[in-house]
């Protein structure tokens, strides 16, 4: 009979070894290659250098970082603002309607992400239906460009990530004890007081999860600005891909990826600290 401790190792090693080799080590490789010199042939030179990091001071980059942060932040805010009333309605609806709405939120997940982004390209196209409608309503002048700008990128980011916000919000609102609503009412609280002092704190955990679920992938957006944005709406992800494929400067691509990775880790650490702090104070 094999001792349990050895049995545990035998069944734990396969997945762990795979993930160490193909996930953990590659992630560390990003940080290593960011300090390697680039060769003109698109390879890696000998020795170590800080040149890549100095080049990140180039005025182009702070602009792109700020745009990435700004768009991700707006997208997260919009997803929470739309997701809250949506999930509230869903959680309070009759069970059958709840199931239907849940399905309708999930189905976009099942359709290919590229195709959803592409569908928007057709909708926003200069000869497409939305432009026709807006011009005939007199809402916009005929020379308006709906595509290839920050607005188009933000719109489709919200479209793509909204289900990621609705899911955790719905899960926490569904568990919220709505008898607290009557209690608040009996104690003389109005709608605004109930919402801000009872409801929002009650579903805080769901809101935090929703923020992370939207913010992290939004920071790494690449396809949406690539297909629907123009040169003035590039994000960090576009720069990473350009450095990796168009100019074949791997250390540069690695340094930008390292920045993104550090940003994501900071968010997660912040989230962990927040959770621990609340646990200590007894507020779960």
């Amino acid at each position: 009979m094999i001792p349990p401790r050895v049995r545990e190792w035998i069944i734990s090693v396969p997945a762990m070894a795979w993930l160490v080799v193909f996930f953990l080590i590659p992630t560390l490789v990003i940080f290593v290659i960011a300090f390697k010199p680039a060769t003109p042939m698109g390879g890696l030179g000998e020795g170590w250098t800080l040149d890549t990091w100095r080049e990140l001071g180039n005025p182009n980059y702070p602009d792109i970082m700020m745009r990435t942060l700004r768009l991700s932040f707006y997208c997260t805010a919009a997803c929470i603002l739309i997701g809250l009333p949506f999930s509230y309605y869903m959680a309070r609806a009759a069970e059958k309607l709840q199931r239907w709405l849940l399905m309708l939120v999930i189905i976009p997940f099942w359709t290919n992400f590229l195709i959803r982004v592409f569908a928007w390209k057709a909708v926003l196209h200069p000869e497409g239906p939305l432009k026709h409608l807006l011009v005939s309503l007199g809402a916009v002048p005929p020379d308006t460009m709906l595509l290839y700008n920050e607005g188009a990128v933000l719109l489709v980011m919200v479209y793509t990530y909204l289900p990621f916000a609705i899911m955790p919000l719905y899960a926490s609102i569904e568990k919220f004890d709505f008898s607290l609503m009557e209690a608040a009412q009996d104690l003389g609280a109005g709608r605004v007081v109930f919402f801000s002092r009872v409801f929002l704190p009650g579903i805080r955990r769901g809101i935090q999860t929703a923020v992370l679920m939207v913010l992290i992938p939004a920071l790494g957006s690449y396809v949406i600005p690539d297909i629907l944005g123009g040169p003035t709406s590039e994000m960090l992800g576009n720069k990473i891909a350009q450095r990796a494929f168009a100019d074949r400067n791997l250390p540069h691509a690695a340094a930008l990826s390292a920045l993104l990775c550090a940003g994501v880790m900071l968010l997660l650490i912040g989230w962990g600290l927040l959770a621990r702090h609340r646990q200590k104070r007894g507020l779960t």
């Binding site: 992630t27 990003i30 891909a241 690695a254 990826s257 993104l260």
Partner: peptide, 14 residues
């Protein structure tokens, strides 16, 4: 959790 582009980039470099 990690954004797709990070996973793609790290595997490419690896």
């Amino acid at each position: 959790i990690v954004p797709d582009i990070l996973m793609g980039m790290s595997l490419l470099l690896f």
